[in-house]
Nucleic acid binder design. Structure first.
Lengths: 194, 194
DNA sequence: ATTTTCTCTTGACACAGTGTAAAGTCTCCG
DNA sequence: CGGAGACTTTACACTGTGTCAAGAGAAAAT
């Protein structure tokens, strides 16, 4: 289930990725993914124990392809708290659209599937780390006007995927305006000034 | 499907309500609801054409029981823009926990079910009206620092159900603090001051 | 060159859940 | 008494997930 012909596994992951991207949340069926990958439905079960694990593997695959780690470490480079906040909001805010389709599917599956919930919460916890680090940097600079826990909660919520979805998809905000406004709001909420 | 014995229909709606409330999003099965209502599974189909319509009827039923209209008209009573904003945020913010279980289920079903999506979007559009009215009142008072459309988008997003869920359920904020903080954030975002 | 091994396919099946259909029961009401 | 309406019971079609077993095909081992 791990050291087989990588090309097939890769093709399945790519097919799942594309399908979930093209209509997020609608949770493609196993047979759809198989067809898109050009393999039999049963072949999926040779590489992944079930649908949930396939989707979890797809998000991990995305993270590898995009190099989330590099992205997050870039925001760690900023010296001042405010720079760090800006770097983190920009990095994560611009990462969301890349992973939205798959992430949303996992998010929805979280409600009914414990494994999906675990993977999803882990991902959100990772993102929260970044929020906490930015908040801590603001506190160190003495510009934070709230408790660190509360500030982290707020920033974490502002940067949540549903918030991104509502503003960009339902309100038709272009991506760059979303980033600018969320950053403005974060600064207002955490430092009391823009 | 509408003028039959009301007690059975009522009992089904109440059962659905309770089940959806007790574990939101997990989408109770028809047989669960039937059992809880003390009727046969098939009886559900005598009153509702399908599962989606049953859940939609459940939200409408909630709105009747709680009297959303009265709640919203109360916020219209406020004279100044800032009062109106506060009244609306408080009213809606405190309404969310009452409807959360059912609303979230409908929200999740929206992804795969067109009827659910219609009902859900209609509900959200209603809520947006309230946002727009509060924003217009702020503009009339000359305290709004953004375009009305953008301000409405922001307020609408701050008051979204996922935002409520994240802060109260995941971050463990008590309900009253949620209302206070969202109101503070809304004032900051729309008027530039708390 | 033959055999073994691995990946994938084919076809079948069990299971859960939704929605439909038909026949039967029960009760109320004329 | 007899009919109408609400509900039950049983059965079934359909979709989608996950399992199982037999076999094809090719590459690797011997």
């Amino acid at each position: 289930m791990s050291r087989e012909n990588p090309s097939t596994r890769e093709r399945i992951l790519t097919a799942a990725w594309k399908l979930l991207d093209s209509n997020p949340g609608t949770a493609a069926r196993m047979s759809d993914i198989a067809k898109a990958a050009g393999v039999s439905r049963q072949a999926l079960y040779l590489h992944f124990p079930n649908r949930t694990e396939l989707f979890i593997a797809t998000t991990r695959h995305q993270d590898e392809v995009f190099g989330v780690q590099d992205m997050l470490s870039a925001s760690r480079a900023a010296t001042s708290g405010e720079d760090r906040l800006a770097a983190f909001v920009t990095a994560w805010g611009n990462y969301i659209p890349k992973i939205f389709g798959v992430a949303k599917t996992l998010m929805i599956m979280s409600e009914t599937d414990a494994d999906a919930a675990g993977a999803w919460h882990e991902r959100m916890a990772d993102m929260r780390e970044g929020c906490a680090a930015a908040v801590a940097a603001l506190a160190r600079d003495g510009v934070l006007i709230k408790e660190q826990k509360d500030a982290t909660d707020l920033l974490w919520t502002l940067l949540s995927i549903p918030t991104w979805e509502q503003l960009t998809r339902l309100c038709d905000w272009p991506q760059d305006r979303y980033v600018i406004e969320i950053l403005r709001l974060a600064r207002l909420a955490l430092c009391g000034r823009a």
